[in-house]
Design a protein around this nucleic acid. Sequence first.
DNA 1: CGATGTCATGATATCGGTGTCATTAACAAT
DNA 2: ATTGTTAATGACACCGATATCATGACATCG
Lengths: 358, 358
Amino acid sequence: MATIYDVAKAAGVSPKTVSRVMNGDAPVNEKTRAAVETAMAQLNYVPSSAARTMRSQRSGLIGMITGAISAVHEFEDAGLPEIYLVQGAQRVFAQANRTLLIADSGGRADRIPALLQTFREHRVEGVLYVADYHQQVSLPQSLRDGRIVLANCFDAEDTPCVLPDDEGGQFALVDGLIRRGHRRIAYLTLPEHYAACALRVSGYRRAHAENGVEIDERLIQVGALPSPTHEFDLLWDALDRVLRAEPTVICCANDKMAMRVYGLLRERGLAIPREMSVAGYDDYRTIAEHLHPGLTSAQLPYAAMGARAADKLLRLITGTQRPAEANRELVSGPVAWRDSVQSRDFNITQLSTRRKET
Amino acid sequence: MATIYDVAKAAGVSPKTVSRVMNGDAPVNEKTRAAVETAMAQLNYVPSSAARTMRSQRSGLIGMITGAISAVHEFEDAGLPEIYLVQGAQRVFAQANRTLLIADSGGRADRIPALLQTFREHRVEGVLYVADYHQQVSLPQSLRDGRIVLANCFDAEDTPCVLPDDEGGQFALVDGLIRRGHRRIAYLTLPEHYAACALRVSGYRRAHAENGVEIDERLIQVGALPSPTHEFDLLWDALDRVLRAEPTVICCANDKMAMRVYGLLRERGLAIPREMSVAGYDDYRTIAEHLHPGLTSAQLPYAAMGARAADKLLRLITGTQRPAEANRELVSGPVAWRDSVQSRDFNITQLSTRRKET
DNA sequence: CGATGTCATGATATCGGTGTCATTAACAAT
DNA sequence: ATTGTTAATGACACCGATATCATGACATCG
């Protein structure tokens, strides 16, 4: 493999001049530059990032810790969409000339020290810590002393983080339902210990409050267990309870639950959306687009979160973080309206409202 | 950041001895080793992989090119499961003390040269090229001159690759259906230009042949288009046609199609599995497990493929590839039997056969 | 007992770049 | 004419490891 010395010799200049051609840190004569570039091309020269890192003390590497890649959760296969988050981050980093080192915790926290060791050996300039669902985490001390940004999670120490706007997402969804004429909106929630649960319920409530619609508390039921062992039984019962409150639409905690609700409603002979509208959360396209009818769902903006988190980390690294900036950033996503929601009781006013919305 | 010299000084030995403690390439006195290790711990020493790479000419890095991470296919969101492939590979590499550099082509082939440049700068020891579905690819020359293994794809130059055993998977599924008493087995296939299509159809045929069951050709229909624009119409018509041939079970090209078939069958008032059994392909658990009833599906063994591909690449790198070994390796997955398939016409013989199978 | 081998360790060069400083020429400003 | 400034380039040290070779202390062997 050709080195900078080979190139220098071939071009009849000093190695330092070759370096200057590559880095543009000092003026180089046009003819010299051409000669160097010709030599580089002929020798098929590729600079060694190891040597560069060593001398310049800048690795250009960003470490990313994620459980998603091998989240072999025993109970859940959540986290797959998190891969979009990787994508969003990767794009931003590539533009900033950084390379991503991805380490996979395999969902096991005890592996993190080893991954971190690898990161340190590679002298990563920062770490992006990605959780597979919105949750609180507590970082090992070793992680906290470097530059780090959390994505899809937060901690008690106010470490910089980027989170989905669950409150706003559920608000937008329910607000949209109300504008479409729904007044009795059932909500099958996540288990209550999930961070997203309380936020979304509060979005649900705010949408009702702001539109002056009262809530029948029987319409809100927990629809899922953390372990799926008796999930169907629970969902069946929860569905039973909300149906007794006679809703016109059922909001589900996520698209997977909505998929099950599709099956359960059909068993009861309720046609979607003619007799019952359904909405999900996540906008997990594999499900939402292929269900029949297409599932209306609030989007979890993973790609945008990844990009924002990457941005944030880059600013931390380059020290351009505006001091006014909050440590915690929320990212909102749109609602994908599909055929699983039917508009009800239209009148002129509501139609015009709806037009504004789009 | 502490260097090997700092450690050497603190332990009262030469840097080379510290190096020996870390690498174990020469005997070190027990007392010396202890002193060095103490010094390393106290100084919080982490060796620099850049320096190591430079001197030893071995980077310990493996490059992975994948479109999955940002496969923003306009029409398909296939490829998400491919992330399991990354997982499988990562695990093997970690054990072999290699670190994965993941580059994301964003589904755009024109970006690959840039990614490759990054890989070369980091002196990767090999490249794993991962496709988002079983397909033929043609590698740029620049990729072909390094050590490379293809996963989930193959090329015309017989580059080493690891592929899913589509023929065997469909065979196992249909064979299992026949053992469960089904004789009229419909098959809604992939579009014909997909590599997997012909393979799976041939597995379907072999299962019939080996069991002495004749095939009513009307039972085989293309069930999907490469673009989803009129996918539902096509599927509707295809379903119509196979139903006229009176099947007892419908095999779908993949789980997404099966999900749509669930909806369509229910619209026709056919209960699954009582009046019609359904099977998928991929074992995309997010879908298969959460559909109601659970979807029987042949597994695409992504994790295993990733591991096998990683193994293969490591053998290429270390030169331990057995010469007898084929360049093309097939990986088989099991069939996940769930409630969407009902057994028919049992008799004692078949019951005992079934017991052996599990 | 000298020759040879093994253990344990150190001295030194080197991997391939870049940071620092020096040098020269050309030209502008004083 | 003197000084200062900028462009263009090179010499040299150095980043932090490891490869190579050398060395001294013992143990083993014929």
